[in-house]
Design a protein around this nucleic acid. Sequence first.
DNA 1: CGTATGCTCAAACGATCGTTTGAACCAGCC
DNA 2: GGCTGGTTCAAACGATCGTTTGAGCATACG
Lengths: 208, 208
Amino acid sequence: MTLLVNSSGSTKDRILGAAELLFAQRGFDGASLRQLTAAAGVNLAAVNYHFGSKEKLVEEVFRRRLDALNARRLDALAKVAGAPGTTLEDVLAAYIRPALDLSHDDSGSLFMRVLARAFAEHDDTLRQFLSENYGHVMRQFTTEFARLLPQLSKQELYWRIDLVTGALTHAMSGFGIIQRKHDVSELAHREQTAQHLIRFSVAGLSHP
Amino acid sequence: MTLLVNSSGSTKDRILGAAELLFAQRGFDGASLRQLTAAAGVNLAAVNYHFGSKEKLVEEVFRRRLDALNARRLDALAKVAGAPGTTLEDVLAAYIRPALDLSHDDSGSLFMRVLARAFAEHDDTLRQFLSENYGHVMRQFTTEFARLLPQLSKQELYWRIDLVTGALTHAMSGFGIIQRKHDVSELAHREQTAQHLIRFSVAGLSHP
DNA sequence: CGTATGCTCAAACGATCGTTTGAACCAGCC
DNA sequence: GGCTGGTTCAAACGATCGTTTGAGCATACG
């Protein structure tokens, strides 16, 4: 089976790291606490001791990554929002690039796959958690999109953003058929993904 | 808990119907055979008697719907493919409309949600099953897209189709924020969804 | 009639799940 | 030394999982 994920760090961090990996690979139900604690190299009871329950652990996995992701998204947005020369590409880049960085970060994080799984699970408590804690980020981006696309009705804009989100989630979680070639560096592949996503989204958002 | 789903039909069909519903709601792991057989109004052992195992049942749920879906997709494609006046809209409609019909069909099928779940699960055996049995459909559509978009490189075309698929899956499985209003008929909403998807995809596929 | 055949049923199987328990350990402080 | 609070540990808890079993029932055929 899966071996140790982390031999260093605190027990809590080792659990969080192993949880992220195993949730991405096998899902929230599919990954058991016994597999998880074995991979983390900690005792089975450590999860309930440090997090209270498996469900709370799931929330912590989300919180840790989403806090970082949305902070970087808002930073990037603040640098371009409201400025006179700002383009659709700029706002989309502020939305897309932090997510791509996260989905391919140093620890080989599979977090975006975990996130996509959460969407697919249609778990109401989890969706409520996401909406409550991170809905304001989406709202800020929507406002900026509306400013740059004044010709679109609110309804029309929502539709298009929804479809962009679908393409984004799909690409970021590695659903697709596109795989990185062996002769392309990780960084180059990420840049290529960002370019495709942004140009595709610009076209989808701004068509007449 | 969930009550009876079907009080008529053969035991096999009742199981398949209940399985589709519960897999969509709770996932393949999350839906137990005891919940499932209770909802179908059949004995617990009936699943293993008629299907052999839970995994085989999952495959049957897919096979039943995907056979119908892809037959209708290929029918629709055959009517427009290769013809001189065929547009991108026509081909996209042949791809999108049968899926939308299925995702909102008479029995309130949640099948597209099941399919999206299968994508998210990243289950290799399931992906192989899908690729082996239905890969040729995707290949035919890709060929037609390539004919209508000769200016795109193969690599570029694959990227764009991949992103279209993401938007499609997202919209069809009801991930998004867009919900049908109470004063809009089911049929009108489906048509609106198709229109948005097609126009968005045309823009994304054909931008320079 | 007897007896196959296809199907359903309640009951049980062993495995695995998330969680709890109580003892053991181990720093730091009196 | 003794004591305390935070942490880890093996072991067990009851619940639920997918699957199997063998008896029971119905229909069809000789």
